[in-house]
Design a protein around this nucleic acid. Structure first.
Lengths: 198, 198
DNA sequence: TTAGTTTCCGGAGCGATGCTCCGTTTTGTC
DNA sequence: GACAAAACGGAGCATCGCTCCGGAAACTAA
């Protein structure tokens, strides 16, 4: 089990100088291109922007998922770390869960096509899916369990299902005034709260 | 306004015999291939299965959306027609809405990749999106309004948002025991019901 | 039937993209 | 400076969407 380098953190260590340099160049170029063309942008385009051959990108990031996770690693990390903090600072476990989901949604909707990629049935993104799960599922589970424990929400919902549902709701073209994923997610949380007194 | 042929119902009328024949052959082949490879299957594959040239498919169905809608037309129609029936037969408007959503979800999850296509940001499917909306949005609106009128659910939710949310929740690989869109949709409906007495 | 006309067909071909292979270049070391 | 290892770059192959046009097939008229 690779515990210190879960998904390509710093594989440049010990590599040749030009390799390390190129790795950073590619990451920067990819970040820029992702904003413009989404995470599905052609590798050629990223390579051109970085002034680098395609093979260089494939050498550093064998799959597209590796490149995407490397680009967003910091933000995913932040999101993961925010979980326990919120649990400590929020008024209730439910508030903590709610605010954490806000963070998660913020992250997803501002990354062009990222939510789409997460659930894509294409094989290119399975590693991305796996990375998100590895990193965020424990956090979500903790928040969910705490909320159940506190009696804020009904039991019976799994964190995996919740996260994937939220991810799915964030899929689609942006800037459609008729569709706001947050409203539906709020509804979902509403349904999760237990007025189940019958 | 084309009221009798909204999206390619029977454009074979008056065409040459071989054209009509090929149209049916292509539809049958497409239906088979969609089951196996999803609605994103290569046109070449469908053409090969139909024993037909690619141009023939493009001639009959200019966009992929046209082909998909033609294949599923009957089932979409059934779903649309079920709306008013359910409203008349169900115990309450909310039950009607709930059952109709069940039908809609059944339809989506049994069609490989259809839900994905509906929200795809690719241009190839915009017409499909439009057709679903044209046909099903009025039905959903009617059910939603009736449920609001009856006081079953809180007002403020638009049918478009609800339908798209449901469609989104149905996106993804099938047969994952950890993810069942129906559970989340049930939660969503739960949140829609108004315990909002505050 | 047959000739003529219109409609329709088929697949070669073009551009885009993912990914690989291999000759060349750069880097690090002695 | 020479040498080996590491990394590079882009040509090249495969796939797919979509079009174009020469030819075949179906209708019509005599």
């Amino acid at each position: 089990m690779a515990t210190e380098s879960p998904a390509g953190e710093s594989p440049s260590r010990g590599k040749r100088a030009d390799a390390q340099r190129n790795r950073q160049t590619v990451l920067a170029a990819a970040a820029e291109v992702f904003v413009i063309s989404g995470v599905d942008a052609p590798i050629r385009q990223i390579a051109a922007r970085a002034g680098v051959g395609m093979a260089t990108i494939y050498r550093h990031f064998p799959t597209r998922a590796d490149l995407v996770t490397a680009v967003y690693r910091h933000q995913i990390e932040e999101c993961a770390e925010a979980g326990p903090d919120l649990l400590a600072s929020a008024d209730s476990p439910f508030d903590a869960l709610s605010q954490w989901i806000d963070l998660f949604v913020d992250f997803l909707v501002t990354k062009h096509g990222l939510a789409d990629a997460l659930q894509s049935d294409s094989d290119r993104f399975t590693a991305l899916h796996a990375y998100f799960l590895d990193r965020l599922l424990p956090v979500c589970t903790q928040l969910l369990d705490a909320a159940v424990e506190a009696g804020d929400i009904r039991p019976g919902t799994q964190a995996y299902e919740l996260m994937r549902g939220i991810g799915n709701l964030c899929i689609g073209r942006d800037n459609d005034p008729r569709y706001n994923p947050r409203r539906l997610i709020a509804l979902l949380l509403q349904g999760l709260q237990r007025p189940q007194a019958s």
